[in-house]
Design a protein around this nucleic acid. Sequence first.
DNA 1: CGGAATCCACGCCGATACTG
DNA 2: CAGTATCGGCGTGGATTCCG
Lengths: 170, 170
Amino acid sequence: MPDHIVRHHGVMTEDGTSKSLGTPEGTDHHGADWNDAFQWDSREDCEVRQILDRIADKWSLLVIALLDDRTLRFTELRRLIDGVSQRMLTVTLRQLERDGMVRRTVYPVVPPRVDYELTALGRSLHATVQALVVWTERHQEDIIVARDRFDRALEPIAAVTAATAVTAGE
Amino acid sequence: MPDHIVRHHGVMTEDGTSKSLGTPEGTDHHGADWNDAFQWDSREDCEVRQILDRIADKWSLLVIALLDDRTLRFTELRRLIDGVSQRMLTVTLRQLERDGMVRRTVYPVVPPRVDYELTALGRSLHATVQALVVWTERHQEDIIVARDRFDRALEPIAAVTAATAVTAGE
DNA sequence: CGGAATCCACGCCGATACTG
DNA sequence: CAGTATCGGCGTGGATTCCG
């Protein structure tokens, strides 16, 4: 048995909710005691959560990063972002424009020319987003190692499960 | 015509790619000149992008925020996160465990007790994530205002479109 | 060139039932 | 209590077509 899974033995009570293992206040654990510690609002309809879902979007982060300090045309963005479809790029840019992150400029020429650039709000977001990107770059090795450990720890379990099934089946 | 949409008039050429509007180097714009400016890798199979997609996940952010400095049981997390299904919480926690963000501790008691807590890696991520949350909280008003402006600017266009359709139809 | 609109497939996710 | 397994809806997003 890998001891990093079961790291500590409980009191072997039949009640997992026993106070001897923590949980001081019983069931009343989601009242004011966690909320006042500047934890954010967990409600589903919370504005912050909706906004986070939007900016944490798969393509939004890329667009914001690429538009930093330079103006790009639609097709340029399309080329720079590997794997994005025309539809998703359009949708993403519209959302970012709606949220005030991106300014869209249409030139009345033919064929059309449309430029996209970050607004002040978008640039301020970029700084924070960049911090997240930097964190990811600096820790990606740790994450890869953790994944390998996790996956290798799981393989033997799968093997045992298969063997058990065979044994039980015959 | 709202002038904030067409903010600047081009040269009225028939070629939207005209150099007179910018784009100094012509089509060779995605070579080394943008990549060496510490811009991140835009390739779809890039590790950083995959990891970002994961941690920017709808539920992951909440779980990481809630596990900061405290250990929680499965059911506690379930109660604290409004709207999460048992399935998604399980999946999210497994992914976070696999990525080395969360430590899962199983107590061999009946009924089972499972504790979740952040690892050192998870805590370091939390700091960065928190910055993003703080940014969102501080700018949510700006975003709401921007959305209202955008939506109100769009309504008259829709009205004109409908009127035009009626006129053309009769 | 930069979209908008339509169609459709795939995958995510919720609901439900069952297990240890 | 803390899951796993299975099914099914439906939303997301890709491919395609057409337009200004």
